[in-house]
Nucleic acid binder design. Structure first.
Lengths: 115, 115
DNA sequence: CGGCTCTCGTTACCATCGGAAACCACGTAT
DNA sequence: ATACGTGGTTTCCGATGGTAACGAGAGCCG
């Protein structure tokens, strides 16, 4: 009788990860948050920051994130009207996770191309 | 002429985030990595840890992650044969990001239900 | 005056992806 | 003999994302 059951191994406790992923889940969301991390940015700036994202998906993400209270949308009364997106305080709270992802990525890049 | 162009605002520097997201991107990937973070686990254990994931997607994720060198698959010569998945050293390197996500989630949960 | 550009999107269409449920082969327990 | 647990695969369908075209409104250029 070899390695039959491990009923003792119980599932990890109630998931804080789900709570966080509910906010930064979805395609391109971490990139958008990262791009907004050092100040408000406009729609077209976000598109330039993240060239691979399509306008449709960017619109969708911004709407989602606004609805969840992660960012705020400000329409400026200029001509042509410009729109700025800015992290709310809830959005700011997500930044440690985003920064950590970026840090890990940086470390991996360094290893890829050593000095 | 109001707020016409902000050419000075240049895109963020070359993206380490992409490097990291290439590994932990994909549905359920963070959950899987988190579940593997404190030791090797078997297929059915992962399913129990993450009840919402379907077998199909879990299989797919595990194959992807194995291919990218994030985890290793070990078939144990038992009966019935059991399969264990374990983080590689590359996988270990992703853990800081995962832990940070979990931390942020914990903080959010605490705020949701204050003492 | 006619057309081009810039703003921030929307729309239609299609490919891919994820979710749900059924199924499978093998071996063991009852 | 029957049922169950192992680690998946298969099928079908709805949701999601990518591509490309179009839109209104204002400014700019010749």
């Amino acid at each position: 009788m070899v390695l039959r059951m491990r009923t003792k191994v119980k599932a990890l406790p109630g998931c804080p990860m789900s709570r966080c992923m509910a906010l930064l889940g979805g395609c391109w969301t971490p990139e958008v948050l990262w791009s907004l991390s050092d100040g408000p940015r406009r729609f077209s700036e976000l598109r330039r920051d993240i060239p691979a994202i399509s306008a449709k998906v960017l619109t969708g993400r911004l709407r989602d994130l606004e609805e969840r209270g992660v960012l705020a949308r400000h329409v400026m009364p200029t001509s042509p009207p410009t729109v700025e997106y800015e992290l709310t305080s809830l959005g700011q709270e997500l930044l440690p996770a985003i920064r950590s992802i970026v840090e890990v990525g940086s470390r991996l890049l360094l290893r890829d191309s050593p000095a």
